[in-house]
Design a protein around this nucleic acid. Sequence first.
DNA 1: GCCAACGTTGGC
DNA 2: GCCAACGTTGGC
Length: 161
Amino acid sequence: MAKKKHYWLMKSEPDAYSIDDLERDGREPWNGIRNYQARNFLRDDMKEGDLAFFYHSNAKPPGIVGVMKIDSGPEPDRLAFDENSAYFDPKSDPEDPRWIQRQVRFVAKLPEMVTLEEMKRDENLEGMLVTRRGQRLSIQPVDANHFRYLCKRGGLKTIPS
DNA sequence: GCCAACGTTGGC
DNA sequence: GCCAACGTTGGC
């Protein structure tokens, strides 16, 4: 039997990079993550082929807007080595990179976004991390049943696999 | 713009 | 190792 898929939620501010940008680009490095818990998910727990929600944070309204696929293994985040980057980190050694990225590939845009407010109100999503007050982790695991439910809720006819 | 909820840094 | 000060995230 094939290894069980994991599901994720990944946040981006649409002013910086939106679902429309990913639809246009097709495949992009997901980089600039500078939080250890999120880094560990990127490095250790994500598998190539996993599916993830694209979440618009700091948006009006915030919420889930699309689905993407993890399309690479863990790679060093080279922005950490670039002095001119906002994500430069002098403590990241190119011989032993501290920060990790993944390639992600566009899968689908949700016909209807599912807002954070809707998710908080929805009893089917009880316990989902993103609805927890004060949490701010930019990469989060999502339960498989929550993933399927949210795909339908967002108007997808078929659940991506 | 405010501020709650963190995470990080650095003095001790 | 403690913890105060500071910085960031991100909803509101």
